[in-house]
Amino acid sequence: MYLSQHIVPVRDMHIADVLLRLRQVGTSGAPIKIDIREVVAGTYGRAIASGIAPRTADLQLAFADTPRLAGGGEYAVVINSESPDYAIAVAEIGKYDGVTGRYFTGADQMGVLRVSKDGQAWEHIKGVCAWMTVRRARFSPTQRIISIAEIDVVDATSIAPHITVSLPAAGTRVDVIITLPDGRAVETPPGVTATLPSAVTGRITLAARLTGTADDTPTLHPDGQIIIGHQAASGDYVSRAFVCGDDRRVRVRVRGYVTGPATITPKIQRANGSWLTPTLLSREDAGDGWSDYTYDAPGFSAPITRVRLDMTGTPAHRPLVQSLVALPLNL
């Protein structure tokens, strides 16, 4: 047997628990299952939360993940049991309520009560409301640190914590704290790679700092993945091949970010497969630390060619390339 009570929160809220009063507790041992489901155009949608309630007269089912309901949205608390022995206390308009000690007269306190034998076809029971309380969660303290992992690394220069979080409202956030073997701490948001100033070897620890408010909390979901990166001292990028021709002036333009000892050096492939280093013509500031570098290779001949970028750097000074343009021009 299924019974559902519709609720419409007046504000966004996390649910702490659901309270029900039973007039009769089942003796068959069958549990009571409670789902909180979205209601869309009168149809029950996905279950936001589920749980098995204890078999007591004053039933309380707490939700550890504190599901969040949107203010003004319609939801259904669906109660299900295979036992016919349970009886849920209800209130009727105009009838005396022995729990509160007064007559139940407020239609504004009524939810929509439905009953079903199979959970598919529902019958509306008018003028009756289940004795039910859905309690809003409050959170204190508003910040908590949760340990994620301890990992042994060798020459690590980048750490990417790919963990899934839910941020239900402004004022909620999650930061990943990476503690290095020497005690230094590096912080980064989930999914954002933390670049280390130097290669690290040893044991690192990762923790998540969850920050919320008294009304809203972020959620840290399980089964995250931590990716450890190692930056080589040098690397290259080779473009796609393009048509060139005989006696051409090949103009190469690179927008790059270069600091300290980092370098970006373009090269053009000759017809015999070797590489030519063009001459730097100019460097122009492109803002925010980026620069436009223009290179020139006059009198270049090859039926097709490619451009290669040779890059060097350190963990603290990593070369970056935003764009690469190569044009074979007629002299």
Rank of each mutant, 00 (worst) to 15 (best):
F139G: 05
V153Q: 05
D182T: 07
V192S: 13
R318D: 00
S83A: 15
V258P: 01
A316C: 12
G212M: 09
T279C: 11
A170R: 08
T142M: 14
V307Y: 12
T172L: 00
S28E: 15
G26V: 04
M311V: 11
R203K: 14
I146L: 15
H14E: 08
A76T: 01
Y86L: 00
G51P: 00
F63Y: 03
K267A: 15
G289Q: 03
S323W: 07
Y2M: 03
P84L: 03
G313C: 00
S83N: 13
L331Q: 10
R37V: 04
D236W: 10
D247V: 10
G224N: 08
S28N: 11
P319S: 03
K95E: 13
A41I: 07
P67F: 00
V200T: 02
A156C: 03
L309Q: 04
A137D: 08
A297T: 07
R11E: 15
V112C: 09
V192L: 04
H14P: 00
G171N: 00
V307C: 14
P161M: 10
D155N: 15
R306A: 08
G127S: 04
G29K: 05
T305C: 00
I125W: 02
D118Y: 01
G98A: 10
P222N: 05
M110K: 07
A170N: 11
A30Y: 11
T105H: 09
V90R: 06
S158L: 15
D182A: 11
G260S: 14
G256P: 02
I52H: 09
D223I: 08
Y293C: 01
G289R: 05
L281M: 10
T263D: 11
I268D: 01
D236Q: 13
P266Y: 01
G94F: 05
T195Y: 14
D182P: 04
I145L: 11
G299V: 06
D12K: 02
V39S: 14
G260R: 06
D236L: 11
A89D: 10
I304S: 14
R135K: 13
A199N: 07
T217F: 13
R306Y: 00
A41V: 09
T179R: 15
G127M: 07
A49R: 06
R21W: 12
A62Y: 03
A271I: 07
S81T: 14
A160H: 11
D215H: 04
Q143Y: 12
T263R: 11
T259V: 09
S239T: 09
T312V: 08
Q60A: 13
T56H: 09
I178N: 02
D35H: 02
T100I: 05
S50P: 01
Q24A: 15
N330P: 02
